[in-house]
Amino acid sequence: MRLHIDRTACDGRGLCAELLPELLESDEWGFPMARGSSGVPEELTRAARRAVDRCPKLAFHLAPGS
């Protein structure tokens, strides 16, 4: 699975970066930024799903692929 952020919907609320600090950080404006690739390792899938569920703008997605 890989992370997909709908940048047109994202408002920079920052929940995803808090819930997935392994994969994301917030930039200076509060918008999520991938630390490396957008691939989600197996052991972080659950945390990623939680971040998808908690995004207040529904901008955060898990998409198939790597």
């Binding site: 609320r13 920052g14 929940l15 808090e18 908690r54």
Partner: peptide, 18 residues
């Protein structure tokens, strides 16, 4: 309060959300 850039009592945002 959740719409603020600063959360109340400086809680993490996901904590406020949960």
């Amino acid at each position: 309060g959740a719409r603020s850039g600063r959360t109340p009592f400086d809680l993490p945002r996901f904590a406020v959300n949960l």
